[in-house]
Simulated scan of single mutants.
Amino acid sequence: MKFISTFFIASCILIQSILYAGGLSSDYYQIEDSAKQKEEFIRELKVLVDKGNDEIKKDREFITNFFAKAMPDAFRGLNQQNVGYLISLRNKYGIESLFDRDEYFKRIDVIPTSLALAQASLESGWGKSRFAREANNLFGHWTYSGVGLMPQNRTIGKTHMIRIFGSLQKSVNSYMLNLNTNDAYIAFREKRLQARSSGKSFGGMEASKTMVNYSELKEEYIKMIKEMIEQNNLLIYDK
């Protein structure tokens, strides 16, 4: 029975990987010139990053308008539809208090484009990794649900798997939500808020300094992000 159970689980994983197999456009993988392939990767990924940030901007605009109207009236006579949407945002961004305006503004904000491009490049090997091509996973996200891709050479005793996404856009959106909600990136959110509050820019180089918890490589990983940004001139996408 144990053999059958293991076989069944493995079959489910295989089916999942087939159903969600994706990666970048087929033309991308036909490009032989590495420089041109990198350019195409950046072009395709920037579209996804921009779309993800646009969704965050919409959420932030709602929060701005909601509190601008609700606070002067001491939250009396609230539109129930707006309250319902506020509840959905509280749940999405993991905010404890429904009317904690400051926490909404701290968590609902855009991700520097250069940072997203650099990390996607690093984590997916410019979109050519097995995880990217078979699971649409651009940022190395793990899962403990039991459904995903089995990492090759996974350490004995470890139970994590590579999360499968239905599309590359969902992978990008998950990455952004992760930075905006996970306790590992509190420093990222605080530094971003400080920059916004003082009217300063918050680009990939500043953001990279807060990514020490993203990888087991710690400080070395920060160095890798910075080098990726510099070598590929990614800061131009933060403007």
Results as ranks from 00 to 15, higher is better:
101 R>P: 00
52 G>H: 04
9 I>S: 13
52 G>P: 07
224 M>H: 12
137 N>P: 00
193 L>H: 05
44 E>Q: 09
136 N>S: 00
30 Q>A: 06
122 L>G: 03
63 I>G: 12
83 V>M: 06
173 N>H: 03
190 E>N: 12
45 L>K: 05
156 I>F: 02
233 N>T: 13
189 R>Y: 03
194 Q>M: 12
177 L>G: 06
186 I>H: 12
109 D>A: 11
55 E>Q: 09
165 F>Q: 00
170 K>F: 05
168 L>R: 05
19 L>I: 08
103 E>A: 10
81 Q>A: 15
113 T>L: 08
147 V>A: 14
192 R>N: 06
164 I>C: 03
109 D>N: 14
69 K>V: 13
210 T>C: 14
56 I>N: 07
216 E>H: 13
142 W>L: 06
91 N>V: 07
157 G>H: 12
194 Q>S: 13
222 I>L: 11
71 M>I: 15
187 A>S: 14
108 I>A: 02
37 Q>I: 03
20 Y>R: 03
181 T>M: 02
4 I>E: 14
113 T>E: 14
195 A>K: 10
114 S>C: 06
158 K>I: 01
7 F>A: 14
226 K>P: 06
214 Y>L: 11
126 W>V: 02
28 Y>A: 04
220 E>C: 05
116 A>W: 00
147 V>W: 06
231 Q>M: 12
212 V>H: 10
181 T>R: 03
144 Y>W: 15
233 N>H: 15
75 F>N: 06
62 F>T: 11
39 E>L: 08
71 M>S: 13
178 N>E: 10
163 R>L: 00
33 D>T: 01
14 L>W: 00
33 D>K: 11
115 L>Q: 09
23 G>K: 03
129 S>M: 07
94 G>D: 05
149 L>Q: 00
158 K>T: 00
232 N>Y: 01
167 S>F: 01
11 S>Q: 10
159 T>Y: 12
30 Q>Y: 01
50 D>L: 05
95 I>G: 09
20 Y>H: 10
177 L>N: 07
189 R>E: 07
113 T>I: 12
79 N>C: 08
92 K>A: 06
49 V>R: 11
120 A>L: 09
162 I>M: 02
46 K>F: 09
219 E>I: 03
79 N>K: 06
215 S>M: 05
141 H>L: 04
143 T>F: 02
207 A>F: 03
172 V>S: 04
220 E>A: 10
103 E>R: 07
54 D>F: 08
140 G>S: 14
138 L>E: 08
24 L>I: 00
163 R>A: 01
225 I>M: 01
19 L>R: 07
180 N>M: 07
95 I>L: 10
161 M>A: 08
44 E>R: 03
62 F>P: 10
205 M>A: 11
183 D>F: 15
48 L>I: 01
124 S>R: 00
108 I>Q: 01
93 Y>L: 08
94 G>V: 01
27 D>V: 11
1 M>L: 08
34 S>M: 08
141 H>M: 05
205 M>K: 15
119 Q>W: 00
79 N>V: 13
91 N>R: 13
70 A>T: 13
45 L>I: 06
82 N>F: 10
97 S>R: 15
229 I>R: 11
132 A>Q: 01
170 K>L: 12
219 E>P: 15
194 Q>H: 10
5 S>C: 08
176 M>G: 02
75 F>A: 05
125 G>D: 08
21 A>K: 05
238 D>H: 12
199 G>S: 12
209 K>R: 09
44 E>I: 06
22 G>A: 01
